[in-house]
Amino acid sequence: MELIFFFIMAVLSVLSALTVVFAKSPVHSVLSLIVTFFLLSGQYVLLNAQFVAIVNLIVYAGAIMVLFLFVLMLLNLKDETEPQKSNLVRLSVTISAGMLLLTLIGSVRGAIAIPPSPAQSATVGLVENLGKILFSDFVVPFEVASILFIAAMVGAVLIGKRNKETDSEPLTTF
């Protein structure tokens, strides 16, 4: 049963990921990316990671992708005006991505060494457990992530400001 779910969602997510890459219109790309995220959340549920699944939906599908759509609409980029790369470039890029895929899949062979540990797995993905880890072991990264957010906010504000004063008088006597 789970295996069937897995395969259906896996095939669909690969298809929608391919749509992201090959869709003519950026809006279609965004929409299929959202579909991919939903399918991945399904995988998380299969993996007993219900909390991650919900957060994934809220953060990615809910926030980030809306931001993308918003920018697309703001810049009015719905129309397909993108010039294509030459066939040679496309071919070589596809080949190199394929090689990457082969390498990655080649590395699967060694993964058998990991035995599943169902006893712990049942509780790993619960909010209680994750919250404990986040606020005990991960408290420093949690705080440090706030620096990241402030930096990103200040950066976005800086870019948002129009720089009007570049040609004013020198102010310092250094």
């Binding site: 690969v14 990921a17 596809t94 990457l100 895929l101 990655l104 899949i105 699967v108 993964a111």
Partner: peptide
């Protein structure tokens, strides 16, 4: 592993 490798490679592509 295979699934995420495929998705990752599609992203890189």
């Amino acid at each position: 592993l295979v699934l995420s490798s495929v998705l990752f490679s599609i992203g890189v592509l």
